[in-house]
């Protein structure tokens, strides 16, 4: 019971430190196999296969970008149509007001613009950024996650999380060190 309180009160999770990316991927795989789901990995560079090892499925971002692109495409084309046909019809070279080939380049540009906006702002929103502080920063040596160390954090919010058992589990994964992450 005290374990439970510790998990939900003081602790954000347990952070294991690794020397190389292979140990990190292996640890992520085994944690996922052991049933842990609320966890995250931190590394100095992108690692191929880490997402799969963590069981991380991100479908919201691609979907947001796609929706942004579709919105930009339809919006850009409609804008051109409204301007050229209704708001400000003009005789350009004797062409009909509705000359769709001329609408394509602006529609193409607004597609990219809105998709890019969706990507940048969607990423910030889904990451909960901007955010001045995060509990993982309290772990000693965590700054090395931007240099040459690799970290795996199992969060106390995970239903399987139990301080002692989870610590033992992480230590069995060739972790150099396991630290408590205080809130």
């Amino acid at each position: 019971m005290s374990d439970f309180h510790a998990a939900h009160g003081r602790l954000y999770g347990l952070m294991a430190e690794f020397d190389n990316r292979y140990d990190l991927i292996e640890a992520a795989k085994r944690s996922h196999a052991a049933g842990y789901r609320k966890m995250d990995a931190y590394s100095p560079m992108p690692i191929h296969g880490l997402e799969e090892a963590l069981g991380f499925h991100e479908w919201r971002m691609p979907m947001l970008v796609l929706l942004g692109g579709i919105f930009g495409c339809v919006g850009g084309f409609s804008l051109m149509y409204w301007m050229a046909v209704h708001a400000y019809p003009m005789n350009i070279g004797g062409r009909p007001n509705y000359s769709w080939p001329a609408f394509i380049p602006p529609a193409f540009e607004t597609t990219i613009l809105c998709a890019a906006f969706a990507a940048v702002f969607g990423m910030l929103a889904l990451n909960g950024l901007p955010r001045p502080h995060h509990p993982v920063f309290s772990v000693p040596g965590f700054a090395l996650a931007t240099r040459d160390k690799f970290f795996l954090c199992i969060e106390s919010a995970d239903p399987l999380f139990q301080v002692e058992a989870t610590r033992k589990f992480l230590e069995s994964l060739h972790a150099k060190e396991v630290n408590e992450v205080e809130r």
Binding site: Y22, I25, E26, K29, H48, G49, A53
Partner: peptide
């Protein structure tokens, strides 16, 4: 060609 997590399989 990097084997899929070659170093991991050995573990």
């Amino acid at each position: 060609i990097e084997a899929p997590h070659a170093a991991v399989e050995g573990g």
